[in-house]
Amino acid sequence: MKAYRGKPSIFKSNNPDEKKVADLEVRNLSLNFGGVKALNDVTISVHNGELVAIIGPNGAGKTSLLNCITGFYKSQKGRIFFNGKDITNLPPHHLVRIGIGRTFQNIELFPGMTVLSNLLLARHNHCKYRISPASLFLSSVREEEIRHRRVLEELIDFLEIQAIRKKKVGSLPYGLMKRVELGRALALEPALLILDEPFAGMNLEEKEDMVRFLTEMNQAWGQTMILVEHDMSIVMSISKRIVVLNFGEKLAEGAPDEVRDNIEVIKAYLGDTGRV
């Protein structure tokens, strides 16, 4: 299925003066759960237009790091800056407002709602009307709802999910759910998009589709992204820069080739064989 594809309007800024800039800086972040150190003194930075991948063995603290950036965990030490503004420990909904959108590792869609309502939900912060006009459903409210619907339809075209837009999310196969979740994160119009294992549990074909969407978003429309993923071949092929975490500490950082040949990284993944 190939529909007309233009640049979806969420990638054009509504206000031409205000460009979507996403510069994230994480400085010396530490996070403890009781006595367990989930993150220890992690420093990373993401610049506008980049696609940065975070990899590491299970339990390395990748998801914890994302949860700190998106406000779901409160870090004990260190600061996080977004576009020069200190965003450490702000609540998640506030971070969404300033332009950090995310997907979840285990799909967190609303299974009882249709795909369209799931996407509409993400437009929450972009609906500007207040409760008094909404309670009367004035024409201004109606027009705004229609405007959002139009934005979402472009997104639906882009993600090629036209056929399922009125289906209940719970009835969809896993790969499509992941795609809908990506759509929902995009509908937030985030400056920085954070994807937590978008390829997990997908078959090859679904992975190829997903890679296509991600590269198009990043390279053609300049979407800034952080990607946590286990599939090395994908990570190596689409990201410009890779950060490796192990036991909550940053092990290495650099271009895919550098990381691949890094002895520390090989040790972390394959175990210390003593031969390398």
């Binding site: 779901f72 979840f104 967190e108 299974p111 709602m113 993400a122």
Partner: peptide, 13 residues
């Protein structure tokens, strides 16, 4: 349905 995801959608719960 899912308050955590709602928070992630920018809804102040």
């Amino acid at each position: 349905d899912n308050d955590r995801a709602a928070e992630g959608m920018g809804i102040p719960i």
